[in-house]
Design a protein around this nucleic acid. Structure first.
Lengths: 261, 261
DNA sequence: CAGTGGTCTAGACCACGTA
DNA sequence: ACGTGGTCTAGACCACTGT
């Protein structure tokens, strides 16, 4: 009267016949989707393991494994007694670890300041379609800014914001908070793609950065999606001599602790 | 007579009093260390789960969790019935996904070719110490190469190889296989750090790439360690108009399958 | 102190690939 | 056909932490 567990009969029932997906996966993607769509915003408390057990009719081990994986991916944070919470996206991309520009400048010990140079609403043109990964014509907010480290121009920013995804942006003047940081606090969780190039600086950027045209610059283009919807495209142009990207690569999670500092 | 498992008495025994590390972690780092040190080279079959169970005196779930994590990090590959095997490091860095240059050029549909421009042995100078992360003076092999896509120079390579870590390199002429690919096949598993910058191309690189000095170039510097020992430093210089780095960032493992193509 | 996550067990059934 | 990994269970004890 102890063994003979009926087991996964629920999953193997005729109705689910073609899913053929592990229970893991289903729970994982369920939670991920809710986080990525913004339904569970950063800070939101995820159901306790016991609740998820009941919801999915499975053992604690199963949900625990999923939550452990999500915690490993930094999508949630777990605190004993308190529960598990959706974490804030660690500014921009955990992969390239590009902090937001204010942090970046602060790390240099210099006072930070930014200026909005241009700001206007318009519809997307065909040339934008590729940048924002959209087919239809959509309302956009186009922004250009310059970020300063001390008195020196540090970074030139050209940005498109999809007003369908972030309608509040239309009212925002970005007087206090730079567009990047503003979006970070507003869009729940994102998927990003980066392109990095060396370019010769051109007119608008050259003027803002006070460089002679043709000087080498590091250009980072980032496209961002949330809930499968394009959110923003941004091109950051850094004077070549001022900026450096660092990316470390170590094997998996806790790689012998302090192998590389 | 069924429950009352003595359980982790082994771990809690007085001798292990201060380790306070989970069994997971111990198994994980044990295996990682063997892979990173080269003791288990790519292709090596890792002990079966049953063997590891006996070795560590634990349940299969525990070792399975570890192997699953290692597989998720692409450090091993698991095949039913066959076992789990150490995987080859996916060329360079899984993070930035920089393929080796030959692959990169092949992807453009152009014939690939490289030339060794300079090659000589010498001892490390103080200026090298930082690049190779070493304190003592060590024997080095210094290489400069140029990689071509079709008839056009594609990438200029400056490399230092630590001959203590890879003594065979001293005899290698790199006539057939480029240094990067040669090291990839020889050094078991690596930890790498990248720095990416936009620079104005200078003398040696400018000549090799047939560019006028001052033209913008993308510079990638990579430092590589294996078994906690510096292996190689390489600086790759790409003409700015020819090259683009792409890095995608999606949440954890299977992010809703086909979210982003 | 009560409840949460952290870890582990000793089984079990299944799918699949290799032989 | 057999043995491996893939997945899951129904417990258990512990450590930590917030109230």
């Amino acid at each position: 009267m102890k063994s003979k567990t009926p087991r996964r009969t629920a999953r193997k029932s005729p109705e689910d016949s073609k899913v053929a997906i592990s229970l893991h996966q289903r729970i994982l993607t369920d939670i991920q989707d809710r986080i990525l769509s913004g339904e569970w915003a950063p800070g939101h408390r995820i159901p306790f393991e016991h609740e998820l057990m009941r919801q999915y009719g499975c053992s604690r081990m199963t949900v625990s494994k999923v939550l452990t994986q999500l915690a490993g991916a930094k999508m949630i944070e777990r605190r004993r007694k308190a529960g598990s919470f959706v974490s804030r996206p660690h500014s921009q991309s955990a992969v390239l670890e590009i902090p937001d520009i204010k942090t970046e400048v602060a790390a240099l010990g210099l006072p930070y300041r930014f200026e909005v140079i241009g700001r206007h609403k318009r519809s997307s043109r065909t040339s934008d379609r590729e940048l924002l990964d959209t087919r239809a014509s959509i309302p956009l907010l186009e922004l250009t800014c310059c970020h300063f480290a001390g008195r020196q121009p540090f970074c030139f920013e050209e940005r498109l914001i999809n007003l369908l995804a972030v309608p509040e942006a239309a009212q925002e003047t970005f007087g206090e908070v730079a567009p990047g940081a503003w979006l970070l606090g507003r869009v729940p969780w994102t998927i990003a793609e980066h392109k990095i190039r060396a370019t010769a600086v051109e007119t608008a950027a050259a003027e803002a950065l006070q460089l002679r045209a043709g000087k080498p610059c590091l250009t980072i283009e980032r496209r961002t999606w949330s809930a499968d919807q394009p959110v923003t495209f941004v091109r950051l142009t850094y004077p070549g001599n001022l900026h450096e990207l660092v990316a470390s690569f170590a094997p998996p999670e806790p790689p012998s602790a302090k192998r590389r500092r």
